[in-house]
Write a protein that binds this DNA or RNA. Structure first.
Length: 158
DNA sequence: GCCAACGTTGGC
DNA sequence: GCCAACGTTGGC
């Protein structure tokens, strides 16, 4: 039985890993998430085949730059065990890993990004998690309605 | 570079 | 379990 289509928004700093990097690599492990809420969403809610809005944070301007999809379910994040990684976590162990993450695959890069200010200016997107004050989660749920609206803004068929 | 908002840590 | 101090995120 087909499961219900779910939608997410995932943030990345383009200087760190941009949508062009994802397009080049085709697929990547979403390592480096060190926030429990974001981890829990990936671990407990995300399913292979879920669609993802790819968001560039700390960018000029910030905004949604394309689409990805979840390609592998959650698994321990290898960077937490790597002493040389900036994501190394001394308190984590292989027996009891603290951090897990999914893999995502590139689907599409928008011809033109949908900037944050454009999203804010879209009345029908009022209430979107991304636009809420103080929202910092790097993995957020997106409703089917919001997904449609953003894709329409991007000129992409849903 | 500033700073508001939020998360985490650790003393008590 | 409280909460102050500190760290991080991320828009501006």
């Amino acid at each position: 039985m087909p499961q219900k289509q779910q939608y997410w928004l995932m943030k990345s700093e383009p200087g760190d890993y941009s949508i062009s990097d994802l397009e080049r690599d085709t697929e990547t492990i979403w390592d480096g998430v060190r926030n429990y809420q974001a981890r829990n969403l990936m671990r407990d809610a995300m399913q292979v085949g879920d669609k993802v809005l790819y968001y560039h944070s700390n960018a000029k301007p910030p905004g949604v730059v394309g689409i990805a999809e979840v390609s592998k379910e959650c698994a321990p994040d290898p960077t937490q065990f790597d002493r040389r990684s900036k994501y190394f976590d001394q308190k984590s162990s292989k027996d009891n890993p603290r951090w897990e993450c999914v893999c995502i695959r590139h689907v599409q890069t928008f011809e033109e990004m949908i900037s944050l200010s454009q999203l804010r200016g879209t009345t029908s997107l009022e209430g979107m998690a991304l636009l809420r004050k103080g929202q910092r989660l790097s993995v957020q749920p997106v409703t089917a309605k919001e997904w449609k609206i953003v894709l329409k803004l991007a000129g992409v068929k849903a």
